[in-house]
Simulated scan of single mutants.
Amino acid sequence: LFGQEPTAFRNTELIYNNELANHVEKLGFKTVLAEGWDPVLGWRSSNFVYRSKTTDNLRLLMKNYRLSDDVAFRFSNRGWNEWPLTAEKYVSWLNSLNGNAHTVNLFMDYETFGEHQWEDTGIFDFLRQMPEELLSRSDNDFRTVSEVAAGYPAMDEVDVHNFVSWADLDRDLSAWLGNKMQQGALDELYQLSKHVMESNDPVLIEDWRKLTTSDHFYYMCTKWFSDGDVHKYFSPYESPYEAYIAFMNVLNDVALRAKVRRMGIAPISQRPSEHLLAQ
């Protein structure tokens, strides 16, 4: 799109493990982003560059989830003991890491700005002020993830056997695979992939690919307490069961269209009308 070949890989919801790292390196990427979850890092800090345990030279940048979530989730929380969060206060926290960190990886969704944190929270004023505040000190700067990975040595290797993500308190795949509905829907979806791809129908393939979006399965999550509240907040459905029913209805439509293709029957929209045939 921009005439550049990407060298850094960011998976959906920062999902990562050793096996994924192997695939990512084989695809030619040099850097991968992951959640800097405490059980993964142990005593180590997310504020340094690491390398993947099972690859030759893949650099690993770990999210500083505390400082990231201060903006992404806690910024407008009036019950938070640090509210209101100003650019000056936030940069003072970043400055306190100088001399004991190579990088602070702030990873968050685009919709943090304007959707999760609405304009009236002051989030855009915060964004406007933060760069100037940060750059007022000569030992601070902004870098792309590739620049960070290339500019600092890997301090250690990180071994991640099980999948880790940035979703929910569990930081695993349970946000999308935690119940039978989610597991069944995903299984049915990927069982259909071979027939869809063999159709060579670009519209059908595109519709199937849209169904692989992780949000569909996120909406089917049946967790309770704080995790459940987050899932419910983002879901357009009244319940996870409605999300499942809606998804399966669309998937069945895609399956029927794939079957029609295999039988050699043109979709109705591509058939000449009886009126034209009569002429």
Rank of each mutant, 00 (worst) to 15 (best):
E132N: 14
S146C: 03
N179R: 02
V148H: 13
F217G: 02
V164D: 01
F126G: 01
S136N: 05
A167D: 03
L106F: 15
M220N: 02
L169S: 11
V203M: 12
Q129H: 08
G178S: 04
T112F: 01
P202F: 05
D125M: 12
E157F: 07
H161P: 11
S174L: 09
D168N: 07
H116L: 13
D156N: 03
W93F: 11
D227M: 00
H161E: 08
Y90R: 09
M130I: 07
W224L: 15
N105G: 06
S199R: 05
L204R: 00
E133Y: 11
L94K: 08
P153Q: 05
I123A: 03
V104T: 15
H195P: 05
P202C: 01
D168C: 11
F126S: 02
L177C: 14
S226I: 12
D159E: 14
G122D: 01
E157N: 13
T222C: 00
K194Q: 14
D172T: 09
N100V: 12
V164N: 02
I205C: 01
A101V: 14
V164F: 02
S193Q: 14
S199C: 13
K180A: 14
E115W: 13
M155P: 14
N200W: 02
L211N: 01
D172Q: 04
T213R: 15
L211I: 08
E111T: 04
N200L: 06
E206P: 04
A154N: 05
F225W: 07
F142H: 08
D170N: 06
L97P: 07
H195Q: 15
W93T: 13
E133P: 06
S226C: 09
L134Q: 00
R137V: 14
T222W: 07
I205Q: 02
V158L: 08
F142W: 03
Q117Y: 05
N179K: 04
K89W: 15
